[in-house]
Amino acid sequence: MWSTLSSIFPYAIAYTIPLLITALGGLYCERSGVTNLGLEGLMLVGYFACAITIRLLEPSLAQYPNGILALGLVAGVIAGGLFSLLHAFASINLKADQVISGTAINMLAGAITVYLARLISGSGNVRIRMGIIRKNIPLLAKIPIIGPLFFSQTYWTTWLVLIIWALSWLLLYKTSFGLRLRACGEHPSAVESAGVNVHRMRYFGVIVSGALAGLGGSVILITYSGEFHGTVAGLGFLSIAALIFGQWKPLGILGATFFFGSATTIANVSQVIPSLSVVPPVFFKVFPYVATLIALVLFSKKSAAPKASGQPF
């Protein structure tokens, strides 16, 4: 049992991290009062930009692998942030239906990234040759039980994402800026009368969500995927599910994404691990979505959703 746990744990974390950072982006957006169903597309844009950047830099800068990977991440973040401007403009300035705008973002991202990728390779797949080398954290990896689970064979992006998560929690809950941002999602007219520019706050929320979703897509590429193939297979929607299941709170989404990441991992490995193969893998795959539906039903009486989320202002 222990050996099973310690062997699948690193995979569970690897699956959790892109979900966590994307759901965190969704948190900024929804808290500022804009629904973002385009996370799937924004992840895809980041995924693509990161793949292209690394692919272009690979031949000339091969001696600095971590530098190239970092540049790829930056490209993913910028691309995600820029692409989210389309959603921001539609839903903030034009007061468009945010659900439709988000759907348009998804469709646009899915079409344009593959369109451009085909120019590089006929099949539309962009493969990169390098990935992050997993490392043990010195000293901490030697701690019994916790060491092997959390601190050995880790990606540096995992720590980057966790730091962003912690800083976001501080920003949203411990600063006046965070309070204003959250108030824009609850009662924008009150915030406006207090002299805060609601539109600017919402722009901030949407752009951060795009940037973080782009980071999520990039992390998928340089950790476990290694190839852009035109889809993130619903991870953006899974992040939205995690955001809801985590009740729009940083600690909640940390728990929810880890829960969902573990379920995905178990589904993927259950066929090779005898003690898990009694349960059909489909159970673990549909589990996050069913759990989210059940959570929505259970919390329907006192929903924690930002009250003005999805309402134009």
């Binding site: 539609a90 468009a96 646009l108 079409a111």
Partner: peptide, 22 residues
């Protein structure tokens, strides 16, 4: 021209119907 052009056109159309206020 890659075939995804059709999907791109449809996506642009849906974006502009969403922003029909314009």
């Amino acid at each position: 021209v890659p075939p995804e052009i059709a999907d791109s056109i449809i996506a642009v159309i849906i974006y502009f119907t969403a922003t029909s206020v314009l």
